[in-house]
């Protein structure tokens, strides 16, 4: 029997979200980045548009991180200078954008004040022309003080700010509305909570096209498949018309991968697992490649070489394909 391609007809597509604002738009960025907009499952160009490629970001911290020594050759010289660090990510390692993690705000780390945090964000903005993602320290109470302060100090920049969860979304959402930023809505690998939080945030009048969702990522070998399946389900829901699941997806890849044993264990201690440097790069790149197949739009990476591999993979996957009808 002759082959005739099977093309799904979807009723809807993923929202687009614009990250960053140029001077004309009320910010200071050299360019903006648009994510989302796809009307097909990941990279299935033959049945729908994939207008914007997924983007890759590198992580910058506001305090010197205790990262594995194999990352020091790449970032060691800029660990204590977030602005220089951000510049390096963009200029040298070709990150599409930068993620600033305000780890120092954590009461158990440096307990940096909201004002201090806002200053670091401004320094980083001054150093690079790319759009910026700003993550809090992960302490919900502190984040609900720090993130609004950051939003105010960078009014109009259209940052992507997070992570807002069920507990602290109100103050962060309010700040994003007033100061024209985008928000990351985080949920613990639970599609109902994901949807519910989007509803709550849009009910506060932040438009759906200013929300990016973080459905929670685990590293390869540490529960990756759970998030993968939630993402697939959310994306199918989005294409079938569920507007409250139709947000672009962000995945915190580097952070999760570098907690794993496989990224860290030395070649000497674990000869059966091969070379640590290459293993860690591939652990990160493979995690990211898997998540791209489930619908990731923004990947937060840590190792420049893993970032390069993933960028290459995205480029290949963006090559259009078609089947004759």
């Amino acid at each position: 029997m002759a082959f005739s391609a099977m093309k799904e007809k979807y009723s809807s597509q993923v929202h687009t979200v614009v990250l960053g604002a140029t001077k004309e738009e009320g910010g200071t960025r050299d360019y903006t980045i648009t994510v989302g907009g796809e009307g097909a499952l990941p990279f299935l160009h033959f049945e729908g548009e994939v207008p914007h490629r997924p983007v890759v970001a590198l992580e910058v911290w506001d305090v010197v991180p205790e990262w594995h020594e194999s990352l020091a050759p790449y970032f060691g010289d800029v660990y204590n200078d977030p602005a220089a660090w951000a510049k390096k990510c963009v200029m040298e390692y070709n990150a599409d954008l930068v993620v600033l993690r305000l780890k120092g705000a954590d009461p158990d780390v440096a307990d940096a004040s909201p004002e201090d945090c806002a200053k670091v964000v401004k320094d980083v903005l001054a150093a690079v022309g790319c759009p910026l993602i700003v993550l809090g320290c992960g302490n919900p109470e502190k984040d609900s003080k720090v993130l609004p302060a950051v939003a105010e100090a960078t009014s109009g920049e259209k940052l992507l700010i997070g992570v807002a969860d069920q507990e602290n979304y109100k103050s962060i959402t309010a700040a994003c509305i007033v100061h024209n930023h985008n928000i990351i809505a985080g949920s613990p690998i639970d599609i109902n909570i994901c949807k519910q939080l989007n509803i709550l945030i849009t009910e506060m009048n932040l438009p759906a096209d200013r929300i990016v969702i973080d459905p929670t990522t685990a590293a390869l070998g540490y529960g990756l498949e759970y998030g993968y399946s939630i993402m697939e389900r959310a994306r199918i829901g989005a294409l079938q018309g569920d507007k409250m699941l139709a947000m672009p997806i962000i995945c915190n890849v580097g952070h999760e991968v570098w907690r794993s044993k496989e990224a860290n264990a030395s070649s000497e201690d674990y000869p059966a697992w091969g070379d640590q440097a290459n293993r860690s790069i591939l652990w990160e790149a493979t995690t990211a490649a898997a998540l791209l197949q489930a619908g990731a739009n923004i990947l937060i990476m840590r190792h420049p070489k893993a970032l390069a591999l993933v960028k290459q993979n995205i480029e290949e996957l963006m090559v259009p394909t078609s089947f004759d009808d």
């Binding site: 993968y228 091969g274 070379d275």
Partner: peptide
């Protein structure tokens, strides 16, 4: 190489 194959087999196992 071991470090190349382990991630791939782990991904397969997860999936």
């Amino acid at each position: 190489k071991k470090e190349e194959i382990l991630p791939l087999l782990t991904w397969r196992q997860n999936l």
